[in-house]
Amino acid sequence: MTKMTNINHHLTDELIMGYSAGKLPEAIDLLIATHISMCDDCRAAMESYDALGGALLEDDTLITDIADMDDGSLAATLALIGEQKVTAAKPVISDVPAPLAGYIGGSLSDVRWRPVGMGVRQAILQTEGEAVARLLHIPAGVAIPHHSHGGLELTLVLKGAFTDEDGHFGPGDVEIADENTDHTPVADLSEDCYCLAVTDASLKFKSLLPKLIQPFVRI
């Protein structure tokens, strides 16, 4: 899986920052990690927000209550070094980026699809937390019937492309929609479209949104 060069629709700063701070549900982390695997621009943004986390760890005006380690902590850690299993990332052969391949057990052809009508198929992925990740397979030229979803919906194109009222979305592009977005995505005629879609499913997550929607650092 190589980097895409024609990505026009990116993640927002607030999503990247939430990912870097480690505050988002697993399903959203999955979509972000998959997009960043395809997009160096968002990868650089993520590493910058990581740098902010690192700077905070070094800031004595913030870490005013530097915790004492237990007695024997260093010795226990040195002992742990040899015991710890270091799992090297296995090279994955897949038609999707590595973070997603781990969730579908290989490639798009390994996915256990369920029909949802109009020839569209989906597969819900196993994630913890208050958001749902699903793969969508939309046959060429087919429209996803208008659907309502409460809260946030993120759609990342893996293969093929679709068009809706907000524009044309090709591989690597992310569409970010909320309950006010009225859209009817139609897959391009030339090939089938595969997407990773994430919806937030709970009030709890919605209450998390305001602070993420209001970024206080823009890069």
Binding site: P25, R43, M46, G54
Partner: peptide
């Protein structure tokens, strides 16, 4: 170190997987 600590926190304390970019 921040990124290692954050990932460990998600994994061990929040009990979620942490998908990382390729």
């Amino acid at each position: 170190i921040f990124t290692i600590a954050r990932n460990r926190k998600i994994d061990a304390i929040r009990k979620q997987r942490r998908p990382e970019p390729e």
